[in-house]
Design a protein around this nucleic acid. Structure first.
Lengths: 246, 246
DNA sequence: AGAATAGTGTCTTTCAGACATTATCTT
DNA sequence: AAGATAATGTCTGAAAGACACTATTCT
């Protein structure tokens, strides 16, 4: 058969193809949206206003809308913008969970993204499908609320991933406001890692790369003023060695 | 409203819920199955016997079967077993691609897994939906065949991921036969990385961890015989520093 | 002996760990 | 001066890089 014939055949096939002929799992996206508040890691959760799991807390997510979303990442960004009013500076696909038991309505697939945001300039908005929204504090990798579906497990695994990445990447930089001191940055690493690091090792690591640049300003704290830095290069950086907590 | 009432309400909701009421993307799984043949990295591809992309090469994949597959990983393992006759010693979820353009039939989501297998004991089988199957040699991150859908790009990105993981993990061990020499293991690392490593550094790294154990045998090569090793601990190992190519 | 492959000795380099010390500010 | 926070000096240690060297086999 010639290649032209195959193309003709494929057109005929596509015309007669009916997307509803086969059973398909439902497809959603969930976001684990992290920020830092009062030196502690927090995650954004919403209270569901619809069944199933009505009135329970859940991650920020929703079904893919085949009409408005060109791809999965657009679904993630749409939900994130709807709830926070901002575009996230960092969004990474974490993992996809699909099985027949996670949703009482049947076979369901969710693609989980995680986002890192500075907490300034965010105005929380309950948006569609929710009647409450809040930042939940992460303590020892867990929050006090029980989440809908398998979201508690997703949150635990995602936070574990963020933690292990903080040992060899600059990802926590995406949680920082525009200007910050090295000490403040180290506190954010501590919040993510749940462990402390040697200040000399930490500063050496941050300053020998080309990640930061000094501003002309100092943070006036009432004690010795601290140099304010800003991010110079907004690509994530991967160190060749991991750093240890204390 | 009491919690009992919510539960009752949820039951009513689920009874009236019809899974076909909303448009859903099609959901598939694709496997990037790697092995080593003649000291070169290869990937398993099949020739499609159905539209779309009929008679073109593609990764080993297929739609999720909601009746037989309890979760996404089962779909991946089912297709892998169907084509190779074996269960893979290593399977990792790589990434999920979902958009409206990747499949001419419309919005489609695929979850990509990658597998690492020793090439022994494999009997290739065309299985369903294919009329040919073969190992394609990966040269500089690419194969000579053009793949269906977005599979060429998926393969490129997945191979890049495997490469970067080889710099700080023991993953290439899953490509080895039961017994192997350190030199053979290093050759496999070279095939994955497309670059050479210092033999002293490589051996030191492999032997100071608890990954391998000596067998009582030597490989007779016609020159100085080499010690044969086997894997002692089959968990993947993460080194705290990356190794450099030459 | 010479070639080929296996494997080692050892010095250098890099960067983190440890921890004492100095610097700059306020009260 | 005392106290608090910011920042550095400097020694040690772990593991990789570089590369010359030895070991074991076959012809």
């Amino acid at each position: 058969m010639t290649s032209d014939n195959i193309q003709k055949e494929e057109c005929d096939y596509l015309e007669s193809y009916n997307a509803k002929d086969f059973d398909r799992p439902s497809t959603s996206v969930d976001n684990v949206i992290y920020t830092i508040i009062n030196n502690a890691l927090h995650v954004l959760i919403v209270k569901r206003s619809n069944h199933p799991f009505k009135d329970q807390w859940a991650l920020v997510g929703g079904f893919v809308d085949l009409n408005t979303d060109n791809n999965l990442e657009m679904t993630a960004k749409r939900k994130l913008k709807e709830k926070t009013g901002v575009n996230t500076p960092y969004l990474e696909q974490f993992s996809t969970i699909g099985n027949k038991d996670r949703d009482p309505r049947g076979w369901s697939v969710t693609t989980v993204y995680f986002a890192l945001l500075p907490s300034e300039n965010i105005t929380l908005n309950v948006g569609k499908g929710a009647n409450d929204i809040k930042w939940a504090k992460i303590d020892n990798g867990k929050i006090s609320e029980t989440l809908a579906f398998d979201h508690s497990e997703i949150l635990r695994e995602c936070t574990q991933r963020l933690r292990s990445k903080a040992l060899y990447t600059s990802l926590p930089l995406y949680l920082m406001p525009e200007k910050f001191t090295l000490h403040e940055l180290q506190e954010v690493y501590h919040a993510v890692l749940s462990s402390k690091m040697d200040p000399k090792s930490f500063r050496r690591r941050m300053l020998t790369t080309d990640l930061l640049e000094e501003t002309a300003e100092m943070r006036q704290t009432g004690r010795r003023p601290a140099m304010l830095y800003r991010v110079k290069n907004d690509q994530p950086f991967f160190f060749t060695r991991t750093i240890e907590g204390i």
